[in-house]
Amino acid sequence: MAVVTMSQALNMALHEEMARDERVFLIGEDIKDSTYGITKGLWDTYGHKRVIGTPISEAAIAGAVLGAASVGLRPVAEFMYMTFMMCAMDQVVNQAAKSKYMFGGKAVLPIVYRTMAGAGRANAAQHTQSLEAWFAHVPGLKIVMPTTPYDAKGLLKTSIRDDNPVIFIENKVQYATTRGEVPSTDYTIPFGQAAIRRAGTDVTIVALQRMNEIALEAADELAEIGIEAEVIDPRTIVPLDLDSIVKSVRKTHRVVIVHEAHERVGFGAELVAQIVQHAFDYLDAPPIRVANPNVPTPFNRTLEELSIPSAAQVVQAVRGLMR
């Protein structure tokens, strides 16, 4: 099995799905030249009818894929930077997410909205936001957040084959730096199945996307002082594999949630509420969230680092719970 980067794994999935199904096409800004290499080579193979570059207009991209999907195509749209999905929220929520319900199940809209979140490259406030909490609150959308190249390929294939709108969030800091084994064969990963990234008995750490790398780093540090952390990656937050999380918390009795999005009304809040509801009698300490401290991501490198959860913060949070 080849070791590839996150962007290469995503590229493999797109190549394979476009070859498999001629209804699949790509649309977005700068996707012919591909800023991060995700759509590299696809224009050369499939041409401008299936790899469509657009003006800088997220609303137009979201509107176009809505129309294309409603007449039987299977679009994969790219929204460079998640903050700019704000400009397409009406098309995504009021139109795509609601249509199946509003038309009595008759509207089938197989749309994948690929977008990039995550801070850590000095891209400042509008090129770093993680807005999964906005979309997780919208009935009718599935939310996919892959952490490893293997998962990225398998989950993107599942997303493209799903008959509903899917928000597929990629962490741009991982594109070139996160590597892993990815088979060149066809495989899919079902939605709603968490991955246990590390088994442990003393505390559960639920981490979203790149924060799994931070959580594993923290778990190694905690192991040195005799605390065994279990690290859980939900992989998709809608649908959510609550069973795996609750089972782990019932075993460890303690939980820390780690995500890059703002803490207030982040998805961590929903996780805490669900965990407390389903594992109240098992908890030995309050669930704690480690997240962005409710600030727009600063441009300044030093301040930016302070706004992203760190392994040290996770270790500190866990140690606080163990007392």
Binding site: A269, V272, A273, P286
Partner: peptide
Amino acid sequence: TGGLGGDVVADLVERCFWALRAPP
């Protein structure tokens, strides 16, 4: 799912955990 209620619960559970007598 993902409603503001989750945040109200999470905030209060974190701050008032030892006062809680039942799951919110």
